[in-house]
Design a protein around this nucleic acid. Structure first.
Lengths: 206, 206, 206, 206
DNA sequence: ACATAATCGAGACGGTACGTCCCGTCTTGTT
DNA sequence: AACAAGACGGGACGTACCGTCTCGATTATGT
């Protein structure tokens, strides 16, 4: 492929450059459709092209398959860093769990989450990307809170922070996903989880 | 519609009765395909019919849509009751978490689990059924163990058993699904989870 | 392929038989489009399917390529045998040339003729078929007239009927196709051609 | 539009002049492709540009559509004046028909002829141009021969030269195009045509 | 034994989306 | 201003399945 030389000395491929506008429209259309509850399998390139007002070739020129496109679309989402920090460990953890629960109640986030939980097994690259952009930042935040708690003496010095993090995140997700749909999820679930976790299941020995 | 009278006195429609063999073959073919990692969306009636050696009509005559078929197929699975009971609360919980982890390592269970985690949002009836046949029995078992622990004094009398159950189940699932694929999941993860849960995060006050 | 046995003992392929109605609709749509002046190259399977109210597969199931479809479509046209016979040789030949000229003035025939003249080189099978259904019958008719003329003494006994036929048919086509579009083609062209042909170009020797 | 002043005083548009080399390459590429048996409909600007080593814009800048380009390309062909004159009328006519038959046997001429016969209806401007550069000169030549024959007494004084010309040209073309492909076209076809035409179909009266 | 009737397999039906190819237009930096 | 390169929106290609339909053949009973 021939290239052209720009003033900045950066090689550029010859010919008309790819339209950033089109690219954005495609990603946005993808997120829109995903947000409308369309799953990765049901998501059709043709529908994306139509909604983005773009030719199919313009999509295929950039992404060789649907999975890559979805990966990039998800990646374009800013991870809405969920934690306001600075209070007590208990307050921070409660806040964190509340944010997750709130997210799971909003349409777009919910759909994105679904994809994460859902199409992840059939699309390993997607899972990897999701871990990167969604799981990892939250994980770091919780780990930081827990470590801070250990330093300040609020938490046990020998606490297994990995396990603790899994218990907190896992618990809220479990309830959101699997609790009986007839019963309301209690509003104070985050507090209850955090408190039980802090206390431990065993009775205090005299 | 004319009916026929069987010896048992049960009214039966006239004409050739439906083949039980075909029905079984269809359900089996469905589970096979699901077990091969095919998701509900990718699962095609055509493929099921082909693998079952059956005409497509024979499937559509019995189930009006794919979801209903999958529901029935999943229902036909015996819930492999996961808990050997009788030891200490700690032992029982560790055993329970181990069973879940093992299941997640075996092909067929893993795939079924994926479907549960996966296609659940797009197929609400499926989710409901899965809750019925997979979640509920496990939930009951854990709740029973926890209540027994309270009775025996091994656990706090005011323990929130729902929350505790969510923490345990959620923690193991979280780790199985979201832990860094490069790092091995530690073999003693079930023990670590149970121990941290029992102890609580907070240090013992003097 | 499995077959079924009919009462008449004629083997029939299993499954739903192909719809004759669809087949006719496809052929008719093809001729319509061709008659609208669409050439074989411009003719799209998609357009045929749309006009016939038929799925593309229904077309591809029967014809592997466009050319075969056009061949069959043309073949379905009844050759409108152009000659009323029984008069003098001169009258019959004039009638024949008139019919050709008239045909070349009517829309549908004109378009079919165009295809014959046109797409024939790029589509040899089409040419062959056209020769069969359009050229050959006309050729036979003219040859018959000429032979009758020889028998009756109206024409020379040693007349080269092949060449004579070519001169008559070729002359009318040449004029229809290549005469100056500004000048009207004279109404009595058929008579003029026949008369010149009968007389010969050379003057009568004393 | 600004213009520049050449030494010859002819106004010229400002900016880089159009490349004559490119223009020639385009026309040549077009004729090449046409000669390879590609029809006007199948002929793609993309293919022409590629073969000419030229950008598509360079073509579209000069010709607004494919037809115009083909017209110009055909126009660039020198009409290979087909008649050596000077012998008897019979000899001249035989020579003329032979030339046509030979042309129809050579690849490039054959393809050009095909285009004439072929794409003419769908592309009227092309037809007109072809009439100008290919038909008209031949027509004139034959008419001249015939008129010369009348003057010299070789032909009837009242011969309808237009009709006669059509019969001769039409006959050879008819045979070349429509004769049975299994039978060889007889080598002496030109002689046979001319002789029959000269004699007329009717027997000499005593 | 035979008519009745629902089911069976096979496969054609009208559709939708696929990923590819090429169209004619447009938008770059270079000549 | 013209050039080559190549991206753009669009339309048709031929394929793969979709869920529905229509066949003849099969398999039960009820007379």
């Amino acid at each position: 492929m021939k290239t052209q030389q720009t003033a900045e000395g950066v090689a550029r491929p010859a010919g008309r450059p790819r339209s950033e506008k089109a690219e954005k429209a495609i990603v946005e259309a993808t997120l829109d459709l995903l947000g409308d509850g369309i799953g990765v399998s049901e998501l059709s390139i043709e529908a994306i092209a139509a909604r983005a007002g773009v030719g199919k070739t313009t999509i295929y020129r950039r992404w060789t398959n649907k999975e890559d496109l979805v990966v990039d679309a998800l990646a374009s989402l800013k991870p809405p860093i969920p934690l306001s920090r600075g209070g007590s460990v208990r307050d921070d953890l409660v806040t964190y769990l509340r944010v997750i629960r709130e997210e799971s109640r909003h349409q777009r986030t919910r759909c994105i989450m679904n994809i994460a939980m859902t199409d992840t097994e059939r699309h390993p690259r997607l899972a990897e990307r999701f871990r990167e952009i969604a799981i990892k930042p939250r994980r770091e935040v919780v780990l930081a809170v827990l470590r801070r708690g250990i330093d300040s003496g609020e938490l046990r010095a020998d606490l297994d922070v990995e396990v603790a993090m899994g218990m907190l995140s896992g618990a809220i997700i479990w309830h959101v996903k699997w609790s009986d749909p007839d019963e309301e999820i209690s509003e104070d679930l985050p507090e209850r989880i955090v408190d039980e976790a802090l206390k431990g299941f065993r009775p205090r020995e005299a």
